[in-house]
Write a protein that binds this DNA or RNA. Structure first.
Length: 276
DNA sequence: ATGACTAGCACGGCTAGA
């Protein structure tokens, strides 16, 4: 099973590129962020033609997440409120469409678009920290359900210096400040692991390059698009790849896809009939 | 210190991204 994540910065603008990538790479699941389209205008037909069904949570112009899958999609959940109904704040945070999950082949796939935060002095930064605190409670509720979890998306946080092209200049600023890093670590709670780092300890691997200042040409990027796995799925991971070349496309997204390869479902626990 | 680019909305110049 292969699960991918990609902030496409408008699914309608990027439709041809996403379709081409799906045809070439053939992942089982592709989680999208920043679809930037209302649900009634989502381009379902283009993906159905490629064998993918979509679970979506979008809005006009901003945010928006979707899960494309060629495997059956079950039990779709939108927003934090799906698991935190009684929590003050969970419903308000749902006004921005940033959270969707679904059960696919026995895996709970959670697709997130974490708020950027703009700048440390901005009220958007306070919103980001509030959102991450809510994510922590959401993941605690998810944990209680007991399903294997793959949490993917645009986290808008570089957790470590090796995830930034110029850590001396950028550490402490937006996407690299201690409070947001600690808030994400608290949500992970030692139970979810950044699978890319299982296979690649070195710096110099980025998933986002700013459109400005020639960041792509100079390879000045950040690794802010992540795939986090529970212990059970981590044991099944055979690789995690950043599809860097996509950033060189004509009219690209500023992010590129990240893909995890999983030996799932584990064959040792299934017999020839696929029964347990 | 700021802005650079890109997209959406709507057709001029904002907001928002990161």
């Amino acid at each position: 099973m292969r699960i991918a994540t990609w902030n496409v910065n408008s699914i309608r603008t990027r439709l041809d590129q996403v379709s081409s990538w799906l045809k070439a790479e053939d992942p089982d699941v592709l989680c999208l962020q920043e679809t930037k389209v209302a649900d009634e205008l989502f381009p379902h037909a283009a993906f159905e033609a490629l064998g993918y069904r979509a679970a979506i949570s979008g809005q006009k112009a901003y945010n928006g997440v979707a899960i494309l899958s060629r495997l059956p999609i079950d039990d779709v959940r939108v927003g934090f409120a799906a698991l935190l109904r009684d929590e003050p704040g969970a419903t308000e945070l749902g006004e921005q469409k940033r959270v969707i999950s679904a059960s696919i082949d026995g895996v709970r796939v959670l697709n997130l678009y974490v708020p950027n935060g703009s700048a440390l002095a901005s009220e958007k930064y306070a919103y980001k920290l509030h959102w991450l605190a809510c994510l922590r409670r959401y993941l605690e509720a998810q944990e209680r359900e007991g399903d294997p979890l793959a949490m993917v998306g645009d986290f808008n946080i570089a957790l470590e210096s090796r995830d930034i092209h110029d850590p001396e200049r950028l550490s402490g600023g937006i996407m690299a400040s201690d409070p947001e890093r600690q808030a994400l670590r608290a949500a992970l709670d030692g139970r979810l692991s950044d699978v890319f780092r299982v296979f690649e300890p070195e710096s110099g691997h980025w998933s986002w390059w700013d459109y400005r200042t020639g960041a792509w040409d100079r390879d000045r990027g950040w690794r802010i698009d992540h795939i986090y796995l529970c212990e059970q799925l981590l044991a099944c991971a055979t690789g995690c790849v950043i599809h860097k070349a996509v950033r060189g496309n004509q009219q690209p997204s500023d992010h590129v896809p990240v893909v995890v390869h999983l030996a799932w479902p584990p064959e040792s626990t299934q017999d020839d009939n696929g029964e347990w």
